[in-house]
Design a protein around this nucleic acid. Structure first.
Length: 722
DNA sequence: GAGTTTGAAACT
DNA sequence: CAGTTTCAAACTC
């Protein structure tokens, strides 16, 4: 609160100092005092939830503008991007003008240094917050989007309880998502700016401190980009260095400041009508916007992907590559000896997929060089039909820092990664079991998929290789193996068949359900991740690898039907209730929505993204699937029957769903007060979702359900925008 | 390394 | 959808 006031005060000072302010004063009866009040009100309003009633066509436009705006920043923040690149991006989007404006105004509103100092108290928090922001920024635009989706974990964390900050984060992220918008009108920009001001208010606590840099006053687009880039680069480095964080914060803060100042100008100078809209409207739309952002993310990302499929993709990959190492990205983790991390349950389906994809692109290369395996891995989209979502993957990877723990590849993934191990060949000489054991001993990270199938011909899910979506390789001791490139057709056909039966058959079994921070805190209990279907253990007590939950390093959940559960990662009986509750905190009344949102990012993971892709050639998806949405999407259409059930769940099992809820989503939901939710529900293809074969309970299927419901988002947009 | 146990996957 | 069978990993000795 204090921070907010400080920020407001700061704004006020800026107003008076700025020429614009003077100009406004001369033109309008509004007095400085009022302006101050206005600012505060604005911030207050911003937090208020917005009824869908207030939404209007204009809102969408605003979104777009905002989106675009954000996009600029995100682009500029790309670590790999040179300043020139950043400029290009801005120019291409026609935002360059705005950027200049912003910088200019920023100068006008140059915050008073004295004030800034005052706000130093919250620095720690700010630092964290900023760092988070940095992470976001550091990543490519796509990444940012992904982050948002997956991000719950990333953004939440220590700040879970920090309503304002979280909101800010959400807002920012939402904006990021919006940045995909293509067309922006002048009015839109104004709105965007006003929103930005809101952001400033929200961020104030941290931003105030952060951005008071001496040089901030003279920001031009280029400099701004540069600063962001620097900040990002620093962010990529371990955030251990406080000074670096400060710098980074500075950059981020500047960014926010810029926006804020611009927005302020708009308020003051903008057209009366527009201003009014902005004042009330933007705020009013805020909730909607956020909601829309989330919902739109999918679509916008897709658009973005299409737009940038070439250049951006390259950038993304680059960023991911560069970013991974520094960011504790998946790659390092995998290679790490810490089995726990590797085992880390995979994260959300999509995450796994993402990880795998990314890794494929990167790690695979390494493997090819190092081991003689048939690591042909095709980075090509063919292998990953859902590559459209690939964007998400990349983003996630680059953002890895925040997720690192969460993102930890699913055990499968970790195993797959294990392929990279140098002694693969040597192991291959030993018997399969021995190999496996070796791998286990060495840690899951180094473990790899080596099946020992005798009768399944490696064409059933019994086969770990096949299930992981990879071809069997030399180390495998399988008999009559058909899971080889030579039999690609057979493999694809079989795979397709299995998918038809269970669309999620090849999806990661462990999905992320909450923020990474919590996991970090409870290192051993990744409450944020759960087995998608739950286990059915009867005798193992969920304390052995027979248990998929345990194997995946995640606790059992309500989805499990295990008996005598003693899962050390969390028992379904509620031993982990605290964690669950925490996860629920901030969750909207409608947990289902949250899930949907959360999983939205995951669709990618579905089939193509199987973790194991990392190490070896992945099984290309059937042509029919290529270029299509992630499996989950497909699934929706595929099995409508099961979905009906799931629907029940969503609506009726809020409680259960809440356990799954994510922090970020909750914020959104909270602010939006259900209107969004309702929209989601109505729009969601829930009815279509396919639940796992055995999921008799709606609860169990809830997660899955959500996953599949993802596709529905496109439909949601209309509702939200109404 | 052989054999047993276990639970997921597949089948009915 | 429930029950049974098949399967291969995990585990024990």
């Amino acid at each position: 609160m204090c921070c907010d006031y400080q920020v407001q005060f700061l704004l006020f000072v800026d107003f008076r100092d700025s020429p614009v302010f003077n100009y406004i004063n001369s033109l309008s009866p509004i007095k400085p005092v009022k302006s101050v009040h206005f600012t505060q009100t604005f911030s207050n309003i911003s937090f208020a939830s917005l009824p869908s009633v207030f939404t209007s066509p204009h809102v969408s436009t605003l979104k777009d503008s905002k989106f675009l705006r954000r996009h600029q920043f995100s682009d500029s923040s790309k670590p790999e991007l040179t300043s020139e690149d950043s400029k290009k991006v801005e120019t291409s989007e026609g935002s360059s003008t705005v950027a200049q404006n912003t910088s200019k105004q920023h100068t006008d509103f140059n915050p008073s240094n004295s004030i800034t100092e005052t706000s130093a108290v919250p620095l720690n928090r700010c630092s964290n917050l900023e760092s988070r922001k940095l992470n976001h920024k550091a990543v490519s635009p796509v990444t940012m989007n992904t982050l948002k989706l997956v991000g719950p974990s990333a953004s939440s964390g220590p700040f879970n309880n920090d309503g304002p900050e979280n909101r800010v984060e959400t807002e920012i992220e939402g904006i990021n998502q919006l940045h995909h918008g293509k067309e922006v009108s002048a009015c839109d920009w104004d709105s965007l700016l006003s929103d930005a001001s809101e952001l400033l208010n929200f961020d104030s606590p941290s931003d105030t401190v952060a951005y008071k840099g001496p040089g901030q006053s003279t920001l031009d687009p280029t400099s701004f980009n540069t600063s962001l880039m620097n900040a990002n680069a620093q962010a990529n480095d371990e955030n251990d260095n406080s000074s670096e964080n400060n710098e980074f914060l500075k950059g981020a803060a500047e960014n926010n400041v810029k926006i804020a100042s611009t927005s302020l100008n708009n308020f003051e100078v903008g057209e009366p009508v527009e201003d009014t809209d902005n004042e009330g409207g933007s705020n009013l739309y805020r909730g909607m916007r956020r909601r829309c952002l989330v919902f739109e993310m999918m679509g916008s990302r897709r658009k973005h992907l299409e737009e940038v499929s070439n250049g951006s993709s390259v950038n993304l990959s680059e960023s991911s590559q560069t970013g991974l190492p520094s960011n504790n990205s998946l790659l390092p983790l995998r290679s790490g000896n810490d089995s726990s991390k590797c085992k880390l349950p995979g994260i959300g389906l999509h995450l796994n997929a993402i990880a795998s994809n990314l890794v494929d692109h990167k790690v695979v290369k390494h493997e090819n060089l190092g081991s003689g395996r048939q690591l042909i891995i095709a980075p090509s989209s063919a292998a990953y039909p859902s590559m459209g979502s690939g964007q998400e993957f990349i983003t996630k990877l680059s953002d890895a820092p925040s997720f690192e723990n969460d993102i930890g590849p699913a055990e499968d993934a970790s195993k797959a990664l294990g392929f990279v191990g140098n002694d693969e060949l040597s192991q291959s000489q030993t018997s399969p079991r021995k190999k496996r054991r070796r791998a286990d001993n060495a840690g899951d990270a180094e473990a790899c998929k080596r099946c020992n199938c005798k009768k399944s011909k490696c064409l059933k899910l019994y086969c770990e290789c096949f299930a992981a979506g990879v071809y069997c390789v030399e180390p495998c001791a399988c008999h009559e193996c058909f899971n080889k490139p030579i039999h690609e057709d057979t493999v694809l056909a079989t795979r397709k068949q299995i998918e038809s039966r269970n669309p999620l058959a090849f999806a990661p079994k462990v999905i992320k359900t909450s923020d990474s921070t919590q996991e970090d805190e409870s290192s051993n209990t990744p409450a944020s991740a759960r087995h998608k279907r739950g286990c059915n253990c009867k005798k193992s007590g969920c304390l052995k690898k027979y248990c998929e939950c345990y194997q995946g390093g995640v606790g059992c959940s309500i989805n499990c039907r295990c008996e005598g559960c003693k899962n050390t990662f969390g028992r379904k009986d509620g031993s982990e209730i605290e964690l669950e509750v925490n996860e629920c905190e901030g969750t909207g009344s409608d947990g289902s929505l949250q899930m949907v949102l959360h999983n939205e990012s995951e669709p990618v993971s579905a089939t193509p993204a199987t973790p194991s892709h990392f190490g070896r050639q992945s099984i290309p998806l059937p042509n029919s699937l290529k270029g299509k949405p992630p499996r989950s999407f497909l699934a929706i259409g595929a099995s409508s029957q099961r979905f009906g059930k799931l629907n029940h769940f969503k609506i009726g099992m809020n409680k259960q769903l809440q356990t799954v809820g994510e922090n970020e989503i909750p914020d959104i939901l909270e602010e939006n007060n259900g209107s969004p939710i309702s929209g989601v529900k109505s729009c969601s293809p829930n009815s279509k979702r396919v639940s796992p074969p055995h999921s008799s309970m709606g609860q169990r299927s809830s997660r899955k359900l959500i996953l599949q419901s993802i596709p529905s988002f496109p439909c949601l947009t209309p509702n939200t925008e109404q």
